[in-house]
Amino acid sequence: MHNVDYEKQPGMENFHPSLVKGPVGINMNYMGEADVFGPEAKISARKVNFYYGAKRALNNINISFSPRRVTAIIGPSGCGKSTFIRLINRMHELVPGTRFEGEILIDGLDILSPACDAAELRKRVGMVFQKPNPFPKTVFENVAYGLEVNGVTDKHLIEEKVVDSLKKAALWGEIKDRLKDSALGLSGGQQQRLCIARCLAVSPEVILFDEPCASLDPISTAKIEELILTLKKEYTIVIVTHNMQQAARVSDNTAFFLMGDLIETGRTDRIFKAPRDKRTEDYITGRFG
């Protein structure tokens, strides 16, 4: 893992050194599985509680995510899995009347602290949503958007980055002649890969996938899954899914959420073969949810 230089991390200029919690890359695996999350954690959540008004949506969540691994978060609807990953890039702030406690560290820095700028954070932590949400602009403009809002003005650099991101998102071949067409004319699967390309263009370190295949057909789903497996070589990936086969296919580690509690985490093969908690077993064997 690369060394983190705090002075040069975007968005971290405002950080007072005292805000940096704990040694960098500490393993926060509370489940006692030393091998599970690797030696260093990219993201660690500590004692996270979350409330919609008076309703508690997350209870004391402690979890870590390893760099360059895919972690799947599974659980029935309303278990808090989407709520949780939206905290990692502070998208929860868009919903008024919410409140959190605890901290989430990325490379040791508390990203929930008011001193951390949400816009800067989101450049480092990209997100792909449930429903493909391309802008009503051309394919090219969609991918270039993130660069432009980040102040890149060099046309050649933008073009290079756009092509590169589309290639990485396995979309270039299908789309290279349609860069000037509206993104709304693409198929659902292409739109979702476009959204992934758009996210890659900003060069994030972490990518959050919030049920990225929920509205896609099986063929498009397979392409996205394949893509996720390629992307994990460079990025830390967290994927929320209600589809357990998908979790089994794409992820290295799995976390199971139920009614706002984190029930169990571990290596994906272990979770599916030998769940330790009765509730995990009930869920993966389809007894509820």
């Binding site: 816009a119 949503f129 009503p136």
Partner: peptide, 27 residues
């Protein structure tokens, strides 16, 4: 204008004003 494309823009690190100016207003 669908809320989802505002989220898309914010998730890319755009500020609220950039989102309004470059995504919401054109749409």
């Amino acid at each position: 204008v669908p809320q989802s494309i505002r989220e898309a823009s914010l998730a890319l690190g755009a500020t609220q004003w950039e989102t309004i100016r470059r995504v919401v207003l054109p749409a």
